[in-house]
Amino acid sequence: MGATVKICGLSDAQHVKAAVSAGARYLGFVFFPKSPRNVSIERAAKLMVDVPVGVAKVALVVNADDALLDRITSETLVDMVQLHGSESPERVAQVKARYGLPVMKAIGIAGPEDVAQIERYAGVADQLLIDAKAPKGADLPGGNGIAFDWRLVQRKYWPCPWMLAGGLAPDNVAEAIRLTGAKQVDVSSGVESAPGIKDDRLIAAFCAAAHAAN
């Protein structure tokens, strides 16, 4: 019984198709100009059109205001909003109420002191993304290709579903699932040949490894 997969940072129709064909259940589209995976709203709208029913289209934003979220939610076929900045639990609740879409909140983990904050969001978010905390001074809050000590979230259970992220790749995702008990995993840089450039073979290998993991 393997894990459900989210492929994040998609910006090309070929790689969207590859992710769907490999069995990914979530596709992430990044709306953050500093990211090499950033897509325009217009481009994302076109990419989402052919995504089959049953595969969730996730809009990743970082401390986005209502004006940006208004455009994304009205101009694309997004199914879920991923808040990947320093949004408060109150902001999570506001986004849920304003748009009527499920909200996933990303939480960066570096040490034991970071784990406690998960509880602050577990009661308000629809899902949690447990990611590696970005290094100090990093331009990106995620997608940096670094992992955290997975033992910090080993066999943890929260009131809402959670997804493991941070430094995952085809060659370590099975071990990450085994150590943490994660039912869902997220990958971005781990299936790229260069920053922002996805690799169909790595996408397929990652999904196969995650689906086969115990």
Rank of each mutant, 00 (worst) to 15 (best):
A56V: 13
V49H: 11
N214V: 06
D79C: 07
S35W: 01
V53Y: 15
L60M: 10
A138S: 15
S188L: 12
L202V: 01
K156C: 06
L68T: 00
N144R: 09
D79N: 12
A165L: 03
C207W: 07
L179R: 06
A209W: 02
R151Y: 03
W162Y: 00
L68M: 12
L128Q: 00
D200Y: 06
V173M: 08
I203W: 07
A59I: 00
K46W: 10
D131P: 13
G111F: 12
L10N: 12
T4L: 15
K105P: 05
R98F: 01
D200I: 08
A106L: 08
G85K: 02
A67V: 02
A64Y: 03
V5K: 08
S88I: 07
N63A: 06
I177T: 03
I41H: 02
G167Q: 10
H211W: 14
L128K: 00
I197E: 12
L83F: 03
K136G: 11
L69C: 02
D131G: 11
P36V: 01
I197G: 00
I41L: 10
V191Q: 04
P170M: 13
P102K: 05
I177V: 07
R178V: 00
Q154H: 10
A64E: 05
R71K: 14
D114T: 10
K17N: 15
M104L: 15
A24V: 07
A210C: 06
I7W: 13
V191K: 04
A116D: 15
L152K: 05
A67L: 08
R120M: 14
A18L: 13
L69P: 01
V95L: 02
S35F: 00
D186G: 10
S189M: 13
H84S: 08
V61D: 04
A194D: 14
F32L: 09
P112F: 10
G166H: 01
G23N: 11
A182V: 04
F206S: 01
T76N: 11
S40M: 08
